[in-house]
Write a protein that binds this DNA or RNA. Sequence first.
DNA 1: ACCGCCTGCGGCAGATAGCCACAGTGGCAC
DNA 2: GTGCCACTGTGGCTATCTGCCGCAGGCGGT
Lengths: 187, 187
Amino acid sequence: MSDQQLLIIDDDATFARVLARAMSSRGFEVITASNADEARALTRRHQPRYCVLDLKLGEENGLRLIPELQALVPEIRVLLLTGYASIATAVEAIKRGAHDYLAKPVDADAVVRALLDGDTHAGEDDVVDAPEAPLALRRLEWEHIQRVLTECDGNISETARRLGMHRRTLQRKLSKHPVRERPDGDD
Amino acid sequence: MSDQQLLIIDDDATFARVLARAMSSRGFEVITASNADEARALTRRHQPRYCVLDLKLGEENGLRLIPELQALVPEIRVLLLTGYASIATAVEAIKRGAHDYLAKPVDADAVVRALLDGDTHAGEDDVVDAPEAPLALRRLEWEHIQRVLTECDGNISETARRLGMHRRTLQRKLSKHPVRERPDGDD
DNA sequence: ACCGCCTGCGGCAGATAGCCACAGTGGCAC
DNA sequence: GTGCCACTGTGGCTATCTGCCGCAGGCGGT
């Protein structure tokens, strides 16, 4: 009955909150930090076994935090999460000791899977088994579009550019999908 | 500087030949293998310090070869190359001990850099930072597909089901291919 | 006014998706 | 062995989507 402590480090408060809820509903005891110092302090105090780390922590680089966290808690498992994924950073993250690397948007189940993957220490009874449900491609696309759109303050042209797609195509996609409520609760 | 031995393992004979020439003109002593058995034999015999490995070796998976090569030559530095790069496979490769992971097409200089740079990688300040741009939709889709595919052990039908798409469509997407990561390569 | 950027809309050719079908394979049970 | 089942590769068809034009209008800065 080990309580599985999970430290979520992300400067995006909204994202952190949502993920925190989703993860605690999946049996984790969640603590959150919004910057590196906080993360260090919490790690020292709580010795979490799991950690979800955002690559882009404001001014700082989440990568540097990995070895530090591991120094504090040798068996910690760090999952890197980023909305700006690239192969180069993924390689770097793993070399620095990250357990896995996922690109946002992810759903909580994927996070759980990645955290527990290959972990003998994980109590099956403690943590809810992840229902196999990867996001359908459609939904993944939609979420990503929304994320970037928000980032661009609703500027469609800019969003299309960043997404590497035609503005017209984006427009059509947006007008098609009116508004989607959350089909499933938490992610 | 390096009269160092380099083993190139690729079932694509043309690619291997071209790369071999490029590398030997850059000071490497190149030997090539086109399959796993050959690679093992050559590794045993020549004890190369460097290795360029294709992720897709015909029927076999190049990933499995990494630990084997390292068992034969502890000092060996394996660079994974693939035309179907994805974050999921990159993570897997590094976890298995690859030194770096590059997406084809690459030029020989990039290969050299990746092979030689060993110690600068960890601990520098100018670490690869998160790219400013979010993933293009195409790439996001590709990454997600790769991830689920891996999860399904390469089972296409299953993957298509989970992804909520038609099997035929997935097949076509997979055979299509490489979405370049950085249009603005410095190489 | 002119310019630059944004937005919405229409059209068109070519790419892509979904769907059906068929053949071949390998595992498994009977 | 024979059938059953699931997987894979392939081709073809049509409906949809995409990219890329164009055009008109809005808004703010020079």
